[in-house]
Write a protein that binds this DNA or RNA. Structure first.
Lengths: 178, 178
DNA sequence: CGCAATTACTTGAGAGTTCAACTATTGGAG
DNA sequence: CTCCAATAGTTGAACTCTCAAGTAATTGCG
């Protein structure tokens, strides 16, 4: 087992500390940037955009609340609040689940899909500009590897490739682009 | 100049998309993890820990609000709210700036320093466990490089090495370790 | 079948962040 | 020396997220 620290305590090396501070600054600012771009463009934060994006990648355009929360790796409570807001905006609808009266299915509305499609290019461009146009192909690969290692630590059992992917293997609509 | 997209619009490649989703999941979960560890350990979120850490690395243990906000790359408003809370906890004190009656100097209290010192090992261990014990030295280097590229895009003019470093070149107290 | 344990989801309070004012002070142009 | 623009910092409302607790339907054990 190597989940927790079997190894004795240590501080960060200078190189690690340099990387850590750069990461903290970069990830915080990247998150703010995405939120600002999307709030200006569509009046919603990045977290909500991802919800719409996940729903759009589903064959039916809908997903049980619990399944959606699992794909997004967020709490059900958080998802409830978010879907409340998206429902009020008219971008998501809650359908009853015929097979389980407890459950409800969050569905992308036509309006929601329109907003997503209209917003995606701006959003993707901001990601490309801030991130991918600045990285070499090798760095993109390392970006994935490093993120996957961290994810292994914090979401053990979650394959890095299935996370944020509703219909795990084989994408239905790659149209979202991010 | 290559700040914005001179290049025509494009979606993400499959590799980029894979990296992006892994990053989104990893950074979100890492942030939650750090907040949970620190909230359990010291009753404060990670953002507040960093404030204490920055103050502790200053020769005097204090910094003007504006300078502190600049080092942390956060808004003055956010800092005001945070320092209000930290002051209420007794971990930070606001001193008057003798040279400018508008300004105030946020200072680490003795109690604040104690909390920081007591909390640091747990916090650093959580970072080591979740991140650095899982990366090769080359990946640590790439982690820094990638973060720096992103930071260049979003905080142009900010050297990746001066960010989150109060007394820019030559650290006074490396005791915080992260 | 009957009821306890589990699962699905919601609720509401508390905390942190953002954004757009707003106050107080300083500095520089004329 | 007088003002006015810029700077330092604060305020409060709106929003999102977390956490603990609650409701409702389902499962499965005896």
């Amino acid at each position: 087992m190597s989940t927790a620290s079997d190894t004795p305590f240590r501080w960060l090396t200078d190189d690690e500390q340099r990387a850590w501070r750069a990461y903290l600054a970069a990830s915080a600012r990247l998150g703010e940037h995405l939120d600002r771009v999307l709030t200006a463009e569509a009046g919603m934060p990045h977290a909500y955009y991802i919800i719409l994006a996940m729903l759009s990648e589903t064959p039916s355009g809908g997903l049980r609340m619990t399944d959606l929360a699992d794909v997004l790796l967020i709490s059900k409570s958080r998802l409830t609040h978010a879907v409340n807001k998206l429902e009020a905006l008219g971008w998501v609808r809650r359908d009853a689940d015929p097979s389980d009266r407890r459950g409800s299915v969050a569905c992308l509305t036509e309006e929601g899909r329109r907003v997503l499609v209209a917003t995606a290019p701006t959003h993707v461009t901001s990601v490309v500009d801030a991130v991918f146009d600045r990285l070499t192909p090798e760095q993109v690969e390392q970006f994935y590897e490093i993120s996957s290692r961290i994810l292994e630590a914090l979401a053990p059992g979650e394959s890095p490739d299935s996370v944020l992917r509703p219909a795990s293997p084989g994408d239905p609509t790659p149209a979202t682009g991010a």
